[in-house]
Design a protein around this nucleic acid. Structure first.
Lengths: 138, 138
DNA sequence: CGTTTGACTTAGACAAAGTCCATTGTAGGA
DNA sequence: TCCTACAATGGACTTTGTCTAAGTCAAACG
């Protein structure tokens, strides 16, 4: 269950009530919360936690590589704790629902040298867009 | 040249000084300006143009399919006038430089039915990340 | 051409998301 | 237990974008 929390403890991350709560909120599969949603849920468990702390903690988790920042829409960034299994995202264009997906193939290999403009390419992010079953039938 | 302007005129788009200036600013290859950058450049040509008009006009160009919205980073949306030729983006993780790229292969075909969760998938957006030559040597 | 009209533009208020900073609190080691 | 470096707080601030009411103008029409 508490994989994220376990990993953080193992890395000697200084544990505080606030950090524990944020990590707990983020735990799970197909979790893609905005900073604000993380804050709301954290407040439910620990009413005195501040917005700044949630932002700080999320930023730190991202730096540690334990959580990924996902920007699927133009609104708020979302935070994805599933950082240890590489994956991409499928987003509903209407309601914003997000699923983790695992396409076959390797898009990095699909970018010819001639198209790299001298860049050192290290990562690729793929976002599929469409309509989820609910929105498609509406 | 004024391909964009030509196309818009051809579509019976009501032409005003403000709209012309915005279209002119956006013209070109590898152009990925934020709304604010578009506004600054538009102001240089037409000082009394307002921010709201720039936003309105950009939104309209996107609706018309003449300009694409790109969200490569967590900051502002960027606007890409190269909407005719499908392409993806290569972004420098440090300085934010953006190039249009044309990978081989079709990522849409790489998403198995089992990974679609019943979604009607219509589009895919690929963002490569790395360091541009300047940032890599620094 | 002049009139008319509905679409376009404007300035500024407002909202949402995120950052910054000086102050206060506390985890964890000696 | 006490200390101290690190963490949390909250409120002001910044950035990005939206909205509205009132004024302006492009273009169709006669």
């Amino acid at each position: 269950m508490s994989d994220l929390l376990e990993r953080l403890r193992g890395r000697g991350w200084r544990m505080t009530a606030q950090r524990r709560v944020v990590a707990e909120v983020l735990n799970g599969e197909h979790v893609h919360l905005t900073a604000d949603e993380v804050h709301s849920r954290a407040v439910a468990k620990l009413p005195e936690i501040s917005r700044a702390t949630v932002y700080n903690t999320l930023g730190e988790l991202v730096s540690l590589g334990e959580v990924l920042e996902v920007t699927t829409d133009k609104r708020a960034k979302r935070y994805d704790p599933n950082a240890h299994r590489p994956h991409h995202h499928l987003v509903c264009a209407r309601c914003g629902a997000i699923r983790d997906v695992h396409p076959t193939g390797n898009p990095l290999a699909d970018l010819p040298d001639a198209e790299r403009f001298g860049f050192t390419v290290s990562d690729v992010e793929v976002t599929y867009r469409g309509l989820c079953p609910d929105c498609a039938s509406a």
